[in-house]
């Protein structure tokens, strides 16, 4: 039995992960801890999870792995704590808010002899995997260009810290860029060499602190270019939280994947209004399953801290580009 714990309920994904862990016969959710006592008690009660008074208490329960769901800027402290305790880590994305923190986390996990996985569930999305198979079969031929979107509603409706720069590290760019950077690296098998970004705070809810919209243009070391729209451009009335799409322009044709388009449309007589109910496969389940399998099989997980680090490099460069109006070179792009 693989014994797992949850460190912090700050990120709303923690709720989904609890269900994912419970759906795995070989895994046991031992409990959770949270530095915010009120939030911890509320979430633990709502989810029926045992709450330990401190992270140290939780880590003393002979755990195999923890899922770190704290605010972005607090990932480092919790990951380092788990690594020192010899516990494998699945860390919510983005890996960190600074490259210094991200680097320290990679080091800590290496020294602790534990693996570091980053929560990039799109690698386990059934529609995105279908595209990976089409690419493997070379049905599109050479890929020249990609257009991708990961737009959403402003997440402050769930948790206020998403628009607090100190805790989140930034706004829409920090929140909604990593899934696509990772998916594009995975599809193109190349590293990002150049980043151009323009951001805006014209969309509402940025708290005067963070950007609420952004469009990023990446050029990969293999010459392919791709855009990412990371904007919080879905109003509260939108029929779902947002979505993720990737369009690929190839030598033999074009393809478009819309990862969350498997929905029923619901038209209630009264509020909450028209909305979509998702019926597709749960990508999170595949991701949590991989975290457990990797621990069982004593191997590195399919998505590692290095993937999280690469995605963060792009975010940091995007902020610099948005500030200067110039493209930013990632010098490691050519020789990685």
């Amino acid at each position: 039995m693989i014994r797992l714990g949850i460190m912090s309920f700050a990120h709303l994904h923690a709720e989904a992960y609890v269900e994912n862990v419970r759906a795995i016969p070989d895994a046991e959710l031992v409990g959770a801890a949270d530095d915010d006592k009120t939030r911890g008690a509320r979430c633990a009660r709502a989810l029926g999870v045992r709450l330990w008074p401190t992270y140290e208490d939780l880590l003393a329960q002979q755990l195999h792995g923890v899922i770190v769901c704290s605010e972005n800027a607090r990932h480092r402290a919790l990951v380092e704590m788990a690594a020192r305790a010899g516990v494998h880590v699945l860390c919510e994305k983005p890996l960190a808010t600074t490259l210094t923190d991200a680097h320290a986390m990679l080091e800590a996990c290496q020294q602790g002899g534990v693996s570091l996985m980053v929560a990039l569930p799109m690698r386990f999305s059934a529609p995105l995997l279908e595209v990976r198979r089409v690419l493997d079969a070379k049905r599109l031929g050479e890929i020249f260009c990609c257009v991708s979107t990961n737009q959403g509603q402003n997440p402050r409706r769930h948790r206020d810290w998403f628009v607090d720069k100190r805790l989140a590290g930034g706004g829409a760019v920090m929140d909604h860029t990593v899934h696509l950077v990772d998916a594009l690296r995975w599809y193109l098998r190349s590293e990002v060499a150049e980043v151009y970004a323009q951001t805006t705070d014209l969309l509402p809810g940025g708290n005067g602190d963070v950007e609420t919209g952004g469009v990023i243009l990446l050029t990969f070391a293999n010459g392919v270019f791709a855009t990412i729209d990371c904007s919080w451009s879905r109003p509260a009335s939108y029929p779902t939280w947002g979505g993720l799409t990737v369009e690929l322009i190839g030598q033999h044709g074009v393809m478009r994947v819309d990862a969350f388009r498997q929905n029923l449309t619901i038209y209630p007589e009264r509020s909450p209004g028209i909305h979509w109910e998702y019926w597709g496969s749960d990508a999170n389940q595949g991701m949590i399953g991989e975290f457990v399998s990797a621990i069982q099989e004593r191997r590195a997980p399919a998505v590692t801290g290095v993937d999280g680090f690469r995605a963060l490099e792009v975010i940091v460069a995007a902020y610099e580009s948005a500030r200067t109006g110039r493209p930013v070179r990632l010098t490691m792009g050519e020789n990685r």
């Binding site: 595209v131 599109l140 904007s231 109003p235 033999h252 393809m255 478009r256 819309d258 388009r261 498997q262």
Partner: peptide, 25 residues
């Protein structure tokens, strides 16, 4: 096309969207 504004969004989504669309030459 879509136009996202400070107080709402206008979307013209094109053909009926599906999880996967592929058009080969």
């Amino acid at each position: 096309f879509e136009i996202a504004g400070a107080a709402g969004l206008i979307e013209f989504p094109g053909p009926a969207p599906a999880a996967i669309e592929m058009h080969l030459r």
